[in-house]
Design a protein around this nucleic acid. Structure first.
Length: 571
DNA sequence: TAGGTGGGCGCC
DNA sequence: AAAGGGCGCCCACCTA
């Protein structure tokens, strides 16, 4: 067990205080004031690799990063762990700041969490000005004392989980979530290598030259709009307005139910094809065009802000820049530095494999023992029709009932009763208003009014209740899989981060580092001579994650790994 | 004018 | 008969 050290920065200036703790969180000595927190942290990190206990890595780590010679190995993020514990204790969504934990400990009124920076409510005044750390502590409270006390309380609550196996898994989850917070801060600091030149060329090819007047449409987009108007009779209309588009098509004798691309693609008319193209290009322009480049990708690095645990399933969210929605076509712009390479690894067919491991379905586990899972599934149960196999299994995991999927589900139910029973049990729990959890114990939110869809056409209360219950069932059905996949991915990320830190390098500047993480995919930017070692580290981390999360399972989680100069060349 | 909502689509 | 899970972002549009 690594030693633990609580830390709190001074509110002003570079100093702070440290306090060593035992595993239960009991202080092993008095607080130690240090004049230079970054220097003190660096020294203690080198000497003893402690687990740093702090209020929140997102605010605590970023200011230290530029001054640390090496990355921190591990931490305990009180805010993230508090959120996990509260959910586990049936108090999903309760305030999770250090101040909230402190208040609950002392029977004080619990302060609401501050709105996330960048959110709509965040610009409401000066609160954040006086609480940049978002701790929400009562005035006069000693932050280090609060860190020590709330940590001890969290350790007590973790130890109170009765089932030893469940306790071990949940502790793993808190450690992985905390490690993720370190990785997220580091990735924001390093940035994703982004070639502004390549991006410019791509945009110019697709849209025409960058408009000299900001806010005007690039030439090719404007021409496309005119062509579209001409194809519908020549009257001008705004292609971005759904109602105007619907009217223009109707006037030309083409009734549309919506302007969705998939509907347009079924219509054999030049205007439909032009509109689809316009939408594709327009989206790139508005969401990932020159304005985006100016805001997010200056200086050869795209620096998104990741929100660890930002999705209820444990997936990460991002804030600004759309880091997790980079269009495939723009991957051409992600280019390694000269002499460096990108190691891109994504888990192949992660979610069905997770289902196989969760349900311990022997048959499905055999199809997930390696190679192409859908191919194996098709050979076993669908006369070699891979598309059907994939459609059926995805439908089972998402709760799909429409289309021609019924017969496929019936086959799966016969062939893989344990796996289908698993998702159907999760769905029933949800329909009955219950709560499910991931493999490591991350609970889903409780049933609430959110799931009552009151916008539907008038109907009896019973119908609304049934609709809402089924929606809840689809959610819990998918949650067990999506959230357990997130458990695995988080464990992989933590293991990989540790393994990268163990690679021998001459200087810290030569160390391979994570630059991207997207649900089931990781990317490492590495000096070319270490690329093979990095690829091996990713493989090892994936296998470590499998063992940690699922224990003894025949299911394998193969990675598709590519070593490339450019992201677009991976797979 | 600002904020909220819904359509639509990018990613997994 | 049928209503496929999770997000972020931008637009038009409506309302206060």
């Amino acid at each position: 067990m690594a030693p633990r050290i609580a830390l709190a920065p001074d509110p002003h200036g570079p100093g702070g205080r440290l306090r060593p703790l035992d595993d239960a969180g009991t202080p092993l000595g008095p607080p130690e004031p240090v004049p230079d927190l970054a220097a003190a942290v660096a020294a203690r990190e080198a000497a003893e690799h402690p687990r740093w206990v702090w209020a929140a890595a997102d605010s605590g780590y970023a200011p230290l990063l530029p001054r640390l010679p090496d990355r921190l190995a591990r931490c305990h993020d009180l805010r993230l762990v508090e959120a996990l514990l509260l959910a586990h204790e049936g108090r999903f969504g309760a305030p999770r700041s250090l101040g909230a934990g402190w208040a609950r400990l002392h029977g004080l009124p619990v302060p609401a969490d501050l709105p996330e920076p960048g959110s709509a409510e965040a610009d409401d005044g000066q609160d954040t000005l006086f609480a940049p750390d978002r701790l929400q502590l009562p005035p006069g409270t000693d932050p280090l004392a609060a860190v020590v006390a709330v940590h001890a309380e969290q350790q007590r609550r973790l130890a109170a989980i009765a089932d030893p196996a469940a306790r071990a898994r949940f502790r793993l989850l808190t450690a992985a979530e905390s490690a993720g917070a370190l990785a997220a801060a580091e990735m924001a600091d390093d940035g994703l290598p982004w070639s502004v030149d390549v991006h410019d060329r791509l945009l110019t090819e697709l849209l025409g030259p960058r408009p000299t007047v900001p806010g005007t449409q690039p030439r090719l987009l404007a021409e496309l709009a005119v062509e579209l108007q001409r194809a519908l009779g020549g009257r001008p209309f705004n292609p971005d307005s759904h109602s105007q588009v619907l009217r223009a098509f109707a006037d030309a004798g083409i009734p549309l139910a919506s302007t969705r691309s998939w509907e347009l693609k079924t219509i054999d008319h030049p205007a439909a094809r032009l509109l689809v193209r316009y939408k594709e290009l327009s989206r790139i322009h508005v969401a990932h065009g020159w304005a985006w480049q100016d805001a997010w990708a200056r200086g050869g690095r795209f620096r998104p802000e990741y929100v660890v645990g930002g999705v209820v399933s444990g997936r990460w969210a991002s804030r600004g820049g759309g880091a997790l929605q980079i269009p495939r076509i723009l991957r051409r712009a992600v280019v390694a530095d000269p002499g460096w390479l990108l190691v891109v690894a994504d888990a192949a067919q992660l979610e069905p494999r997770v289902l196989a491991a969760l349900s311990q379905d022997a048959g499905l586990a055999r199809t997930a023992a390696g190679g192409d899972l859908y191919e194996a599934l098709a050979a076993t149960a669908f006369q070699g029709d891979r598309d059907k196999a994939k459609l059926g299994l995805l439908g089972a995991m998402y709760g799909q009932t429409s289309g021609d999927i019924g017969p496929l589900l019936a086959i799966l139910r016969t062939r893989y009763p344990a796996a289908m029973g698993y998702v159907e049990a999760a769905a029933r729990t949800g329909e009955d208003g219950g709560v499910v959890a991931s493999r490591l114990g991350r609970p889903c939110p409780p049933a609430s009014a959110d799931f009552l869809d009151l916008t539907e056409a008038p109907e009896t209360a019973g119908d609304a209740g049934g609709r809402s219950a089924r929606a809840r069932g689809r959610f819990t059905r998918n949650f067990v899989i999506q959230a357990s996949a997130a458990d695995w991915a988080l464990a992989l990320l933590a293991a990989l981060r540790r393994r990268l830190a163990e690679l021998p390098v001459a200087t810290a500047a030569d160390r391979p580092h994570l630059v991207f993480f997207q649900h089931d995919e990781v990317m490492v930017h590495t000096p070319a001579n270490l690329a093979d070692a990095v690829a091996a580290a990713v493989e090892a981390a994936a296998d470590e994650a499998r063992r940690l999360v699922f224990g003894d399972t025949p299911v394998r989680f193969p990675l598709s790994t590519a070593v490339v100069e450019c992201y677009a060349d991976a797979k």
